[in-house]
Each structure stands twice: as C-alpha cells, then as structure tokens.
Design a binder for these strands. Structure first.
Lengths: 103, 103
DNA sequence: AGAAAATGCAACCTTGAAGTTGCACTTGAT
DNA sequence: ATCAAGTGCAACTTCAAGGTTGCATTTTCT
C-alpha cells in the first residue's frame, strides 16, 4: 500500500468531512453548501478543491452553477486498504506484553 | 458513523504514517525510531503521543526504555467503517451525469 | 438591457502543527 | 560509584492550513 497521506489529509478536517458527508447524500453547489454550513463560500470552495484533488468528489458545471458530488468508490477502496493493513497488525499487543513479561 | 477526524488527522502526516507502519512491523522505542527516521527523537515522541491519542499505538515501559507498537484493530475497524460509508455513495456519479443531461 | 445569482481570483490574517534545541532526570551496566 | 543510554519537560521557530473580505466575471431570467 503506498502512502495515502493525501487522502487522509483531505479527510482530517471537520468542516471538510461535513462537506463530504453532505455531498454523499445529494449533489450540491458551493453556494448551497455555504448556506448550510457555518463557513464562507470561499472556504467551501477551497475544501472542494482539496477533496477533488484527493479524488473524493467530482464536479460538473450546470449552467451558472457547479454541482459537486462525493465519489464513494474512492472512499470504499481506501477503507479496504486500511482494513487489510490493520488486520496484518492484529495480535501484536499480546506479543508486546509477552516481551514485557520476560523482564 | 461518528466523525473520525481525530483518527484521520493522526494518519494525515507522512512522518507519522511512517512511524505507524514501522511499528506495525515490530515494536520499537522512540530512540530507535529517531535513528531510523530523519527527525529528532522529540518529534517522534510527539507523533507517538498523537498516534496513542487516536488509539493507533500502545506503549509499554520496559526498564529504561518505552516500547511502542501499532494497534491493528483500530485501523481495520476504521477501514471497515470507511468502506461501508463509501459503498453507500457509489453510483452517485451517474446520477449527477443524468441530472446534468436534463439541461 | 439590466438586475440578481453564482462563480473565480487574489490579498490578507491568525493559529496551530511539525520540528528543533537544550537541559534535567531515571535506569542499566561496568 | 560512575558513565552512558533513554526518557521527560519546556521554550522557541517556521510555515502552511483554514478562514475571511472585496471585487470582477459569467449566466439566467424578466
């Protein structure tokens, strides 16, 4: 698994997480999101750029507005990778305890 | 799913990710990690605190040193949550495209 | 044509994250 | 007892992330 820091960084901000979850429910424009969340439209725009850069949302111009939507495939793929990596580490705690026991 | 921003923030830094992966291979102390990675021991210590705060590593004093190890269970649980959430969003892209078509 | 709504661009501010250095304290080994 | 290795604590620096505001531009609708 190559380092997924970009995706995690995109997910690591609370506002951005809210935006993403919101876009998972239904597509929306930056202006709409700015009305629903307690930040300015420009802040929303920056968050959308970061989310798009991580492949977590895609945009689509529709007349005078730009509509954004969450990309579930990316998130589920990341989830699978994490689950796989984590499973490989399970049980290490007991190994540590044992190492501690052999004082 | 409640907001997992803390865990993501912990995973969002490159150095921290390297530390975590390293601790997934084999337990190690901060001093050892500082020798293996291009940062000071104090930086490592701070990263370990953050990782521990997110439940991704546990520590264990062993004589004069403190040994740390990755907790796979947390990571795999997070992975499952992500995968589940992402799956719920799959297919939304086509919905967006269709919405765009009805110009 | 003209007004309202939406986006795009840019400058600016503030705060916290990541890192460093220096020194004191504890523990193991000789 | 002494020295080295490891950890703990604290002050300090730097820089980018997150946010704001202001204004210009495009598009829709009447």
């Amino acid at each position: 698994m190559n380092t997924p820091t970009t995706a995690f960084a995109a997910l690591a901000d609370g506002t951005r997480w809210n935006v993403l979850v919101r876009l998972g429910q239904e597509p929306a424009s930056a202006s709409v999101l700015a009305r629903e969340l307690p930040v300015s439209r420009q802040a929303i725009v920056k968050h959308l750029e970061i989310l798009a850069g991580a492949g977590l949302v895609v945009s689509c111009r529709r007349g005078r507005e730009v509509v954004h939507v969450a990309v579930g495939e990316r998130l589920s793929a990341l989830g699978r990778d994490l689950e796989r990596l984590g499973r490989g580490w399970e049980g290490r705690l007991t190994a540590l305890k044992e190492a501690a026991e052999e004082h």
